[in-house]
């Protein structure tokens, strides 16, 4: 199981072929117009306006409609008219698959239900984040995914502690880090005690004993664990309208000392306590 989109679920399960999915996506691309294209079709803006909005978007992180309003090209009412037209004419993937003959209409609801069940373990809960942090719900979701993945992938029962504002992450047996870039920018770090690292490695490798296994392999399981957490975060963020990229994970050994947040970054710390006194801490250093 993993966070995925409906089309991937159907192809992975062998319900539709890759060719049929590509055909349905192609159909969606012709029907589902972007905001600017819809506004053009409604004759609310000109090609020159589209160009102007795109250029303005280079220097400010605003959606097309919001930017067009800010530039005085359209007013709020017109923006809502465009959004309503987009919403009403949107062709969903299930419908597109029916239209290209890849799915029977009668079976769609059943597959949507199966998909919902498949994704239900990844429905995230709200995590309390101190006030004044931008994109709170996104970082809360990342912390909650960490907690859920510790249970699902690493088979660990952990008790989450309260989120704190910090400017560093203290060294432990190992720290793994990933850079998150795009519409959300942060450094995600996971610090693990020796026992926690072994527990994660045993679960990730499906092995009772780690005797004789090189430290590199054990460390790599932590890197892979955060890779999966951040990858699934990226997938969830995309579903919520934020495009983010993740870099390959890096490992930081304890002799490097504290890992400090950079100037201008806000640090959040999420402790996860294990029953036997072992500790896992996730930190997110958010770029302002």
């Amino acid at each position: 199981m993993a966070v995925k989109f409906f089309g991937q679920f159907l192809v992975e399960k062998g319900i539709v072929s890759r060719e049929a999915l590509l055909k349905a996506i192609e159909l969606q691309e012709t029907v589902n117009l972007k905001f600017g294209e819809t506004a053009l079709a409604m004759e609310l803006i000109s090609e020159a306006d589209v160009e102007r909005v795109h250029k303005a978007q280079w220097s400010a992180d605003l959606q097309f409609g919001d930017m067009a309003v800010q530039l005085g090209i359209i007013n709020e009412t017109q923006m809502h008219q465009v959004l309503t037209r987009q919403k009403n004419s949107h062709l969903y993937l299930g419908e597109a698959l029916i239209q290209v003959g890849a799915l029977e209409r009668e079976s769609l609801d059943g597959y949507l239900q199966e998909f919902k069940v498949d994704q239900s373990p990844y429905v995230t809960d709200k995590t309390d984040i101190p006030p004044g942090v931008i994109n709170q719900e996104m970082w809360g979701m990342l912390a909650d995914l960490t907690y859920k993945m510790l249970g699902r992938i690493a088979n660990l029962t952990v008790r989450p502690g309260q989120c704190q504002l910090v400017n560093h992450l203290a060294p432990n047996c190992l720290i793994a880090a990933i850079e998150i870039t795009g519409q959300l920018n942060a450094r995600y770090l996971l610090s693990v005690s020796a026992g926690a690292r072994e527990a994660i490695a045993r679960a990730m490798l499906s092995q009772e004993s780690l005797e004789g296994e090189p430290q590199e392999l054990l460390d790599d399981t932590i890197a892979e664990f955060i890779n999966v957490v951040c990858g699934n975060f990226s997938a969830k963020a995309a579903q919520l309208g934020k495009t983010v990229e993740i870099e390959p994970p890096q490992l930081i050994q304890p002799d490097a000392g504290n890992v400090n947040s950079a100037t201008g970054q806000k640090g959040l710390l999420f402790p996860f306590h294990l029953a036997d006194g072992e500790l896992i801490e996730a930190a997110i250093f958010i770029n302002a």
């Binding site: 995925k4 989109f5 890759r18 890779n227 990858g231 997938a235 995309a238």
Partner: peptide
């Protein structure tokens, strides 16, 4: 991939 829900990467791969 662990980027399952990112539809554009999935589509690009196919």
């Amino acid at each position: 991939t662990s980027l399952g829900g990112v539809g554009d990467k999935f589509t690009e791969a196919l």
